[in-house]
Nucleic acid binder design. Structure first.
Length: 146
DNA sequence: CTACGCTCAGATA
DNA sequence: TATCTGAGCGTAG
């Protein structure tokens, strides 16, 4: 089993040795996804026997519950901060956002599929009309959920 | 302990 | 409709 840590994705420094063809497989997956192919990235990288070291990235119990639920939100599906709250039995909607804000695997851990009750909501730490939010809207539109 | 935040429902105009 | 308020609560520092 092979693990990838968040900083590995910068392709600058590897904590674990990763084969070159695995990297190109990963790149192709993401290219396919961004070009509109209906692939669920999290499942696909599991198919490549790549497993994210989630427990290293999210320390608290609360955060792990949020992420555990989120990785089961598949391509084209949608959830909301309050819906996640319902599942994990918490009303800390903003705290859920604070967890997702530190998601080291955007696209793969699909925090773009978490919408605000009224509107789209923030993405990658931003709540205003920055490029991050436009990307979130783009992804949702691509998955036909806007 | 404090202050903050990818939220929400309700109030107000 | 749009904008404002306070409740709510987990977390980093």
């Amino acid at each position: 089993m092979e693990y990838i840590k968040a900083n590995n994705l910068k392709l600058t420094k590897y904590k674990y040795p990763i084969e070159e063809n695995l990297i190109s497989d990963l790149i192709n997956l993401i290219k396919n996804y961004l070009s509109g192919k209906k692939v669920n990235l999290y499942d696909k990288i599991n198919d490549l026997n790549v497993h994210l070291n989630i427990k290293d990235e999210f320390s608290t119990d609360f955060a792990l519950k949020v992420i555990d639920h989120l990785i089961n939100v598949k391509y084209g599906e949608i959830t909301s901060y309050s819906e996640i709250g319902k599942v994990i039995d918490s009303r800390a909607y903003r705290a859920i956002g604070n967890v997702l804000k530190r998601n080291p695997f955007p696209l793969i851990i699909p925090c773009h599929r978490v919408k605000r009750k009224n509107g789209v909501g923030g993405y990658m730490g931003k709540i205003n009309n920055e490029w991050q939010q436009n990307l979130k809207k783009y992804l949702l539109k691509m998955e036909s959920k806007i």
